[in-house]
Design a protein around this nucleic acid. Structure first.
Lengths: 331, 331
DNA sequence: CTGAAAGCGCTTACAG
DNA sequence: CTGAAAGCGCTTACAG
């Protein structure tokens, strides 16, 4: 079942079939109708491999991921998939496996099977990014900026602005001043900007930040738990804790509960992400809603622009939103 | 940069390069070394489209999904990706869009771009399954059995056995007898077998099930909430509620909290899935841990068997595990 | 508006 | 063990 069968059935050449398939050339309506009829009669569907080989592009977009889970991930994938599909591309997915030995394909995703890839991995993997960039292979970065100022489009969220809203709320509405912050992993850009937002808000309110108020939470439950426990034991628990992420907030809840501290009466807690879990915590978590699905969609749009035109917006910064629940002291 | 460049560099024919690339024919070690050297010097990576066209297979596996989120989804995808990658295939992902108009490709995933697909959608989409089956296109079903006894491999979990463990525990350890069950969506096979397990356990313990104890929860928070609220208002709240799923348990918690009922003192609650959220609920949820990632891996293994040999295990039933926390009354 | 033909970059019998 | 050549199923100038 090939294009030749369709051509025969319709009584035209394969070139004409190809033209109606791709609307890539003039075909009089009458002929078009015959061709379409033949296609649906035969249930014909063009072979991707042959199209790709002949047209010299794969009609596919890659998504390079770390092994992760949760809503965050699903939302982003949903966004990517929807947009890729809408654009008529295929979506290829691979996780980054830095420890695999030498293979025929340097990466599971590359020029050989995709027209471009969206990269969402730790900044440690700069070599991959370089490799792609040097090969002039279209890429878009997620939640991180390009290494060494390379002109690679990047899509992320307004971390700093989100932090500002959070801390402004804690100070303006609730009057807290001793506010702790749990940092994310080293070199993580989300963490960098969230800390910036925290510092800016504090400074603008004339609060001098005590270095003791900043601790390492790594955006994980375990490490955040330890950090808060350390505050508890050393006796300088802040009035409010900005846990850096919702995961961090979970660890914070655990530690405070264990220390017999009530949230928000003894210590207020706020997070970042708005995982679906946030509203089920006791008390429900005040946090920042990140537009994760939109990030996915935007990344695809930017990548397709790069594929088609050679460039796109250097930085897409998607807005975040304050979600007030009860852990900050409201209600 | 093609196989011809490599051949020139190594001073051999392209056939020989192809042979070392695919280990598809005898090549003396000496020649192999020269070819490998040429490949890595040039940084050559074969073009998928050309390979696929020439070899008449795509080296890709498809995963057809509904638009969903959460850990469940991520875990399964992680499993699928790991196994696909390990097997040297590419992974193509698409979500099912039943309402799209007529297009050139009847499905985003099919013979044209994959060697086979894993289908994870509502049973409503039997037509797609039929379509693939009739085209002799390799498929494996996830969490559902084949329509009309078609010999299509299916991978799912031990729902019935999981339910049995849960209800046995409620009865044997805690002595509950009036146990409610929140059904999942109609035609959902997980729900079907979970209900079977519930009924079996009850019967084996000599408990006659009051029809009032069974309500529709749809595995969702909202509907489960309503169902439990209805029990509360009508005054026949069971002693324990098996919410059918963890999502259902969340709705159940909400309803009970709102009705001023304590968990587990007034009403015990158990779920199914062991979402990451389960341990953070107050009280932590007793539930069944489903081997979601393994389901993903197994599906890939079965699909590859079908692709290679034409058949695989008709049914893979992966074991589930009881996770005891406090919502059942333990501790 | 339509067709004949070259070419995309591989794989794979077939010879030797 | 190796090579020359046909062929995979499309797209795309080029003619007409």
């Amino acid at each position: 079942m090939t294009i030749a069968d369709v051509a025969r059935q319709a009584g035209v050449s394969i070139a004409t079939v190809s033209r109606v398939l791709n609307t890539s050339g003039p075909v009089i309506p009458e002929t078009q109708v015959r061709v379409r009829a033949a296609i649906s009669q035969l249930g014909y569907s063009p072979q991707a491999a042959a199209r790709n080989l002949a047209s010299q592009c794969t009609h596919a977009i890659g998504l390079l991921l770390p092994v992760i889970g949760g809503d965050f991930f699903s939302l982003m994938l949903n966004g990517v998939e929807a947009e890729v599909n809408r654009s008529g591309y295929d979506l290829l997915i691979a996780t980054f496996q830095p420890d695999r030995g030498p293979r025929i394909y340097s990466t599971p995703l590359g020029k050989h099977n995709t027209d471009g890839v969206i990269i969402f991995t730790d900044p440690l993997f700069d070599t991959t990014i370089h490799h792609f960039y040097e090969a002039q292979f279209p890429i878009v970065l997620l939640y991180q900026s390009a290494p060494e100022q390379l002109p690679i489009p990047s899509v992320t969220i307004e971390n700093k602005d989100g932090s500002r809203k959070l801390i402004d709320h804690l100070i303006d509405v609730h009057g807290y001043r001793r506010i702790g912050f749990l940092r994310g992993p080293d070199r993580n850009e989300d963490s960098f900007w969230r800390e910036r937002g925290y510092r800016e808000s504090m400074e603008l309110h004339g609060i001098t930040i005590n270095p003791q108020w900043i601790a390492e939470g790594a955006f994980t439950e375990d490490i955040s738990y330890n950090a808060v426990m350390h505050w508890v034991k050393s006796g300088n628990l802040p009035e409010a804790i900005y846990a850096g992420s919702d995961e961090g907030a979970m660890g914070t809840y655990l530690a405070l509960n264990q220390a017999g501290k009530r949230i928000p009466e003894d210590v207020a807690v706020v997070g970042f992400d708005d995982m679906s879990l946030a509203r089920y915590l006791t008390p429900p978590l005040t946090t920042i809603k990140a537009p994760t699905e939109k990030v996915g969609r935007m990344a695809v749009r930017q990548l397709i622009r790069v594929i088609r035109t050679g460039s796109a917006d250097p930085l897409s910064l998607l807005p975040t939103e304050l979600v007030i629940r009860q852990s900050c002291g409201c209600k």
